[in-house]
Amino acid sequence: MKRLGNQLFFTGPTMIFFSIALLIPFVYGFYLTLMKMATPVSPMEYAGVENYLRAIRDNKFWDSMWLTIKYVGATIVLVNVTGFALAYLVTSGLRKQNFFRTAFFTPNLIGGLVLGYIWQFIFVRSLPTLGEKLGVELFRLGWLGDANLAFWALVIVTVWQSAGYMMIIFIAGLISIPRDVIEASTIDGANSWQRLTRMTIPLMVPAFVITVFLSLKNAFMVYDLNFALTGGGPYDSTKMVSMHVVQKAFIENNYGVGQAEAIILFVIVAVVTGVQVYYSKKMEVSG
């Protein structure tokens, strides 16, 4: 009995906050998907799976889902490669490496909204002016006015924002690699490329599991950056799935369908990240 009291004492606060911030809204959200409401005011009626059927038939939802998947693919690769490269750089005994660590990490401390507006200014005003002055055609184009370039603008800003964070995780991984292993391989005649691909990266799989998971999850759920940088434009060509869900629920007054789409998104993200973590855990080299 005393033990139960102890457990309540230690886990209680966490559970209270977890429930208020996550569990209750989630359950209530799921409940909403089974209801329909004509206006924000009218009473809810039971609708069964109708909302899910309508969500599945919503072509724009799947279009934005496909766009999000492309974005996920692009950002996972670029964020992790850049993050790892930065980490490798700042642990290679560079002078002033602590300064660089801080500098690369700083973008992550700026919120997505602010960041989006800053980069919007860069893409809309600074780059074209620069392109004009230097005569670089690629800069002169209004990046956010072109569907393809606007997509890559989103990817670039995401990489700029998250690579520094991933770098920190990679640094922790790099530092924890036992020096004797590296030393032994050097004595055995491995060059630096072989040391990196044969020794360092396999030993860093645990770090990759975390970073890939984080970038996967963040990319699937992206909203603030999308909202601030492109607002879904031009002509809705960069509208990611979260933005579509918000629009469905709040602009078109379709809470039920919007919420059902959110649940579908949740299931997809849960399955994808679950599979990712399960399989990459298997790749870990047990020390």
Binding site: V124, L141, G142, W143, L144, G145, P234
Partner: peptide, 11 residues
């Protein structure tokens, strides 16, 4: 103006 699709209200 050039680039009407990136030109916003404030601009």
């Amino acid at each position: 103006n050039d680039q009407p699709l990136t030109f916003d209200y404030n601009a």
